[in-house]
């Protein structure tokens, strides 16, 4: 479904992503891990079209996306959240989600229904009329997901959704992801919470200094010597 081909991103004096290639199949949950500054978010920015790679390309459902901007990529079915949340602060929570529903071609009335349904699903409906910037961080993160879901994506990019959540909230988030996945949504998930990744991901990609260090099933990746030395520090027991 998604193919990242040999993508490199250079910033001034820094290579943030270094010849990265990987693929995600339809219906998969792919985990993306790596130390701070490994280039994970930058890779998301490339896939979602916010930055153009220095070289390499992104192919989605057989189509080369290189010429498409973020808006068109979203309309093709790529939704994303932001690690540093970006709510439309001055709008209500509902209106935030309405924006997402509108871009998939729904009229205002229909978009509002979609938005309400989405809020309900994420149990944000109590906050529908709250101004987004007054929402606590954990809920703002959930709003990121709601907004992106409302656009009706086929592939969802989640950037550190679980950071700062308590165990119950993490569990909720995980079961939501699995539920949506069961309905056919493909996921690419950046996460520092290893045990969480282990529970849902079919495949894990470890990024280090911009390059893919290891790729494989979580159980294999977590036992990899290199991964342990650069990232994990000590082996993690599978949950």
């Amino acid at each position: 479904m998604l193919e990242v081909r040999n993508v490199t991103v250079d910033f001034v004096g820094l290579r943030a992503v270094d010849h990265v290639s990987f693929a995600a199949e339809k219906g998969q949950i792919v985990g993306l891990i790596g130390p701070n500054g490994a280039g994970k978010t930058t890779l998301f920015n490339v896939v979602s079209g916010l930055i153009r790679p220095t070289s390499g390309s992104v192919v989605f459902e057989g189509q080369d996306l290189s010429r498409l901007g973020p808006a068109d990529r979203n309309r093709k079915g790529i939704g994303r959240t932001f690690q540093v949340v970006k709510p439309f602060g001055g709008l209500t929570v509902l209106d935030n989600v309405v924006v997402g529903a509108l871009t998939r071609g729904q009229g205002l009335v229909e978009a509002r229904q979609t938005a309400r349904a989405t809020l309900q699903r994420l149990r944000l409906d109590r906050f529908a009329d709250t101004i987004a910037h007054s929402l606590p961080l954990a809920l703002r993160k959930r709003l990121e997901v709601a907004r992106a879901l409302a656009t009706g994506p086929k592939l969802m990019l989640l950037d550190e959704m679980m950071g700062g959540l308590n165990p119950t909230e993490v569990n909720e988030t995980l079961s939501l992801i699995q539920e949506l996945n069961a309905e056919g949504l493909t996921f690419l998930v950046i996460e520092h919470n290893m045990s969480a990744i282990m529970r849902i991901a079919e495949k894990v990609l470890v990024l280090n200094q911009g390059a893919v260090l290891v790729e494989g099933p979580p159980a294999v990746v977590t036992r990899d010597e290199q991964v342990i030395s650069v990232y994990l520090g000590e082996p993690i027991e599978s949950a």
Partner: peptide
């Protein structure tokens, strides 16, 4: 950026 990523 958020708006663009939502398809605006």
């Amino acid at each position: 950026d958020a708006a663009r990523s939502l398809g605006v």
